[in-house]
Every structure is written in C-alpha cells, then in structure tokens.
Design a binder for these strands. Structure first.
Lengths: 200, 200
DNA sequence: CGCGACGTTGATTTGCCTCAACGATTGTGG
DNA sequence: CCACAATCGTTGAGGCAAATCAACGTCGCG
C-alpha cells in the first residue's frame, strides 16, 4: 500500500512524527473498485471515511422517480463518505460508486475513534477538513439559489477543469441540477464563443 | 450574562468540569442587536463564531442584480458564522443581520484557538457540530436538486415549524429559492387542503 | 393619518424540461 | 475481430413550473 498521498493530505493541516504516521497507516485498509462497482449502497450503513488515491468516485441519491442526483465527485486526493450514516450509525440514502477503476483507503469510524484517542491531533485534522467541506457545500447552496444553469456550468468548468475528462456528461449535468439534453445545448453554446479547449 | 444555554448546547457532545466551563465562559462576549442591525457585512472579516441566545439572525448574500439569497436562519440555540471568512481570514461575502431583536454570545477565532489549546475536548465539540452542519447543508443541496418548490415548502414547514412566526415570508421564499409571489401562491394552495395552522 | 414595506392575486413570459428521433461511441459475446 | 446492442451525446418541437410584471389590499409605524 502506498500511503504517501494520504500522508501528504494529512500534513496539509497537522504535523506527525514517524510513530504517529505508522499508527495512522496501520488503521487503513486499501481496496480496489472496478468502474461502476459500488462502494456503498443506499440503506447500508456507511462505516468508513474514504480517501481516493486513484480513479474517481461519486456519491448520489435516487429520487422517488428513479432519477439520480449527484452530490459529490471524488478524484484522487479527495475524501468522500455518507457522513449522515457515518455519524448516526443509521442506514444512509447515498450511493457511492466508481466512475472509473479506483483505489481507495478506508478508515472505519471505530478506528478513527481510536486514532483520536491516541493522536488527538487528528481530531483537529478532521475538524479542519470538515470545515472546508462545509464552506464548499454552503457555497454550492448559494450558487444553486443565485445562478442560472449557464452560470453554474461556467463555474464548474473553472472549478474542476479536469473532471470533464473522466466523468460522463450526464453525471455532470446531474451535479449541476439540469438535464443531459439541456447540458448539451449549454455546452455547445458555451464553446461556440470560447473555442473548444479554451482560448489563446 | 446567562451562559446556561450555551453550556447546555456544549454538553450535548462533551462533558466539562466546573473549571473548564468557567474558562470557556470567560472567553465569550455577550452582545445585543436590534432588529435589522448588522452583525457582519459582506467584505468584512468575520472573526467570530456566533451563538444565538435570544431572537433570530440570518445569513445571506446579495447577487449582482441586488437580490438577496438566504443561506441560514439562526434562532436561539443555533450557531452561525461566515465560516469562509473565519477560517481563511479573508473578507467574506455573507451578510449577517438580526431578523428580530437578538442576544448573542461571540467566540473569536483567536480565543477559540486558546480554548483548543487548554481544553482539547472543544476540538471534538466543534468537529461534531461542523459535521452535523455539513450533513444538513448537503441534504439541502440534494433537496434543491431533487424536489419541486412545493415539496421544499412542505419540508420547510415540518423542519422549522416555529420559524414562520418570526421570519417574514419573503425571507423564507428566498431561503427556498423561489420568489415571494410564488411562495404566496404555494402557501395558500397548501393550507387550502390542510386547514390553517394544521389539522386535528 | 399617511407612507412604505409586505403580502396577495392575475396575466404574461421564459428558462428549462419532456419527448422523440437520430449519430457516435463503447463494449461484449460469438 | 466483427456484429450488434447498449449507452451516451446531440438536436429539435412542444410543454410546464416558476419568474416577471402589474395592480391592489393591509398592516405597522412615524
């Protein structure tokens, strides 16, 4: 298991000595998923925080009409989880699957608690990344309230320029809250005046 | 200053001895705001986490067309802040003002850090309430993606039955992402078949 | 009392959805 | 390695949910 990506991620917010690093890594399980494989299904209990080292995951719900709604994409270096299920211990409503073949590191809630007990700094680490996620999620709420579909599309292109390469359009459309058909129309209109693959 | 509401709030997630309680309370500043007074304006730096003990605050942005978009209401017992500004130290885009006369307790980021240093349990407390906020915010994103205006309205009525009493309709409309006019139409249609103020 | 903010209601418009038909690409079993 | 199906993306015609615009009633407050 190559733990360097996750150690680099952790070191963005806290400093660990070698013993702490080793203890942390000893709690992780590495797992691989093929494209379209489920990491977590709705109604299951999500017991793990998931860190992606290769490929891309996605979290989404299915509504009463069978439509998918994408909550999050997780490319390498990102954390993903059904946090409702994780903190309540109850069945969640999120599906998490692999957009493309992926490798992840899993940290169960149980092991996370023992990590907090032995290396309290991690309490700080997870507080900080949760704060950052909250800022991003709230910004997304505001974007949905205040921006048109075209504006949200343009924002997405700037915020995640690389995701379009590995994620099907219909999933991005779903993330933006529009239909695949309308996404296609917006996109062609957008690149008509910007030139395909950006300007000068 | 009556610190019992905030101590009760804290005790939901961590246990404090008397010395810890006293130290925590010593870091708080109490402040009052009249209806419509600003707690924080956009472009200012939000240095405080805000706990409401009386009245009601609201956080919102103003878009390029001058329209307000409500991100959050904070009745008594709720925390509110411009977390982007709080954690980055940069000017934020949120306005926070009083929907009605309010009393709040302020904890500056600086004092919060000294609190973490002296009583590490608070690192845990804020991690947990941030996790809960994140769950709620993500659920709201999903609601905006998957529900109609009518469904969001009905959800809001169940989730915050008491807010309608102290918050003007146009602010609730803004929170739900609809116009005041359409809110009015939905509302009359909703109560036509449920009876005003709910059934038996 | 009179003014301004708020809420209501109706007529009209519009951004985005639905439905349908059609290429392009992917992938899969023979 | 190819035939075929399945999935995906594109394009157009028509429809609907919610916005906009406008007029009017009501309430709180100076």
């Amino acid at each position: 298991m190559d733990a360097s990506p996750i150690l680099k991620n952790v070191s963005r917010h806290i400093d660990l000595d070698t013993a702490e690093e080793q203890f942390f890594v000893s709690l992780l399980r590495e797992k691989e998923f093929e494209k379209k494989a489920f990491v977590l299904r709705e109604q299951e209990i999500g017991r793990d925080s998931i860190f992606v080292t290769r490929g891309c995951l996605r979290a989404y719900t299915i509504d009463h009409e069978g439509m998918e709604h994408v909550l999050q994409f997780a490319p390498p270096g990102w954390w993903i989880a059904d946090m409702y299920s994780l903190i309540s211990g109850k069945p969640g409503s999120l599906n998490i699957d692999a957009v493309e073949d992926a490798t992840v590191l899993l940290l169960s809630r149980e092991k996370q608690e023992s990590l907090f007990a032995r290396v309290p700094k991690f309490e700080r680490f997870f507080r900080i990344i949760t704060e950052n996620s909250l800022v991003a999620s709230r910004q997304r709420v505001l974007d949905n309230l205040s921006l048109s579909a075209r504006e949200r599309f343009a924002d997405f292109c700037h915020q995640f320029p690389s995701l379009a390469d590995c994620v099907p359009q219909k999933m991005i459309a779903s993330y933006l809250g529009i239909t695949p058909e309308f996404f296609s129309k917006i996109k062609s209109e957008y690149f008509r005046q910007k030139g395909p693959k950006s300007g000068p």
